[in-house]
Amino acid sequence: MDMLSIKNVSLCYQTPEGETDALKNVSLDVKQGEFVSLVGPSGCGKTTILSLTAGLIRPTEGQIFVDGKRVDGKTGCDVGYMLQRDQLFEWRTIRDNVMLGLEIQKKKTAENVEYAENLLIKYGLKDFFKHYPGELSGGMRQRVALIRTLAFRPKILLLDEPFSALDFQTRLSVCDDVYAIIRQEKKTAVLVTHDISEAVSMSDRVVVLSPRPASVKNIFTIDINAPTPLKRREDPGFSVWFDKIWTEVCV
C-alpha cells in the first residue's frame, strides 16, 4: 500500500499581483518505508508539494492521500515536516523542544515522553537534555530538529532542504546521521534538495521535476547497494546516476 499518494495535483497561487502556476498535474506514489527525493530547478514548486502534503495549503485540482486518508486541511500527526532551518525554540531546552509536537497534539503521555527521550539518548544527545539550542552545533541542532519531528511518530517525514544551512563537511556527516535515524525508525521520507549528489546518496528513488509549473519529468530508481550515504558516494555507480540525473534536470 502507498503511504503517500499524490493524484493529478495542480496548484495555482493567487496573489494581488497575479496568478502563479506552481504545480501542473503532479502524480507520485511513495511506498511505506521508502526514501524518495525531489529535485528540480530553483523555484519550480518543490516546497509547494510538501506544503500540500502537510495540509498547509489545498490543491487547486487533484487529491492527496496519506496512508489512505485524504489530506484535507491540517493533517497534524500523520505528517512530520522538517523545515530548511531547524526552527528550534531558543527559550526551550533541547528536551522541551523535542516535546513540542506532543504538547501541540496533546499526546504528552508518559509513554510518548519516554519514547522521545529515548530517541535523544539513542542518537547521541543524552548529555544535552537541559542545554539550550544556542549551545549546540549546527549539525546537532539539525539532529534535534529531526528527533522533534519523529517524537510524535508521524507516518511520513517531509524534509525540505534540511542540510542547506550546514557547511559541506558537517553536511556529509549529518546526512549520514539523519539517514541512519530514518532507516532505523523505518520511516517513509520525502526529501527536497537542490543537491543531486545528496539525492543520489540517500534515496531509493529520485523524482526529477520540470521547471515551473512543476510536473514529474522522470523518476529514477537508484540501485546502489551500500549501507550509508557516504559509502554510496564511493560506489562506482554513484557518478553514473549523478550524470544521468544532472542531464535530466538541466535539459
Binding site: 498547509l56 491540517k74 500527526c77 512530520g80 515536516y81 532551518r85 525554540f89 504538547e103 501541540i104 497534539q105
Partner: peptide, 21 residues
C-alpha cells in the same frame, strides 16, 4: 519568524497554541 509559525501549523497547532507556545 514565519517558519516557526509554519512548523507549529504543520504539527496541527491551533491559533491559541501558536499564541501561547
Amino acid at each position: 519568524d514565519k517558519g516557526k509559525i509554519f512548523l507549529l501549523e504543520s504539527m496541527g497547532a491551533t491559533k491559541f497554541q501558536i499564541l501561547t507556545k
